[in-house]
Amino acid sequence: MSLTTLSVTDAEVARFRTFGFLHLRGVQNDVVPAISDAFEDVFANFPVVGRQGRAGVARIAERSEVLQELLLADGRCPRLARRLLGGDVAYVGGDGVRYDGASYWHRDGNHRALRLLKIVQYLEPLGSGTGALRIIPGTHRRGGSWDTVAAELANPLHFLGLENTEVPAFAVESAPGDLIAFDPHSYHASFGGRDRRRQITTTYAAAPESTEARRELGNYLLADRSVL
């Protein structure tokens, strides 16, 4: 199995730092069948846990030799993480998930100093009305006004007079073989997708540059992610 060469331009790095996400199209089109088969094999042979609308297997990449090769061993995702985070990184986990229905506006954690990158791939084509990842650009920035809008985005109809689907955002329409790299502190959601949408993630942390970042990284690694 071979992977398309992955390169990221300076302009793409700037877009990621400005908006909090980057969409890379078709970089692994040639291995989509192998990844899809490996996903199904893991789900058939490992415990699946979760809650209504979201069920999965934690650390899926380590549970399959195929996924270890395609997501970790080849260096492609770590290279992308180093490029976007601007230095040394550490792999800190990831999931394989089947989604049913909507995923409402949220951030993945509220770290003040820890810098993270989540690399997502979907195994079905997704459009704006069929479950594509939606991101509110710029909300990855912490320590500013975006940190105060959790209530508004948890209930936009009450606070803003907007349905969840009307919140201004960018829908990252994707196809199998695409990668979406985003800062998980960005507000993100998905709506309108059919049941059993398949997603694989790998997450990387930047080398901590402060005592607070080291503490947050330690807490992140100790957190129980077996219940999704």
Score class of each variant (00 low, 15 high):
L80W: 00
L160T: 10
T9H: 10
L70I: 05
A81K: 00
D95E: 10
L228C: 10
D10E: 15
G56R: 01
F16W: 03
N164F: 06
G177A: 04
R17F: 09
T211R: 13
L116D: 01
G53L: 05
V48A: 03
D100M: 08
V120Y: 01
L160M: 13
G94M: 08
L6T: 09
L133R: 03
Y204P: 02
P176I: 04
I136T: 04
P184Y: 03
E166D: 13
A34R: 08
A73R: 09
E65Y: 07
T201E: 10
T139N: 07
E152M: 13
L217I: 07
R115Q: 15
D224M: 10
L162I: 12
D178P: 04
H188K: 04
A171E: 02
R82M: 14
G50I: 05
A55M: 15
Y91A: 07
S128P: 14
F170G: 00
D100Y: 06
G87L: 14
R115Y: 10
T211M: 11
G56A: 08
D41H: 11
W105V: 00
G56V: 06
F191H: 01
S145C: 14
P156N: 02
Q199C: 08
R225P: 13
I200T: 04
V149G: 01
R59A: 02
G218H: 05
A38E: 04
L160R: 05
G53M: 06
T202F: 08
I60C: 09
E166K: 01
I119R: 01
N45H: 14
R196M: 13
G127V: 04
R54E: 14
F43L: 09
A34M: 12
R194A: 15
A150D: 11
V97C: 06
M1C: 15
V227C: 10
D178L: 07
T211C: 10
L116K: 02
L117C: 01
V57H: 02
V97H: 03
Y122M: 13
A151S: 13
P137W: 00
A90R: 08
S103R: 08
N29Q: 14
Y220P: 04
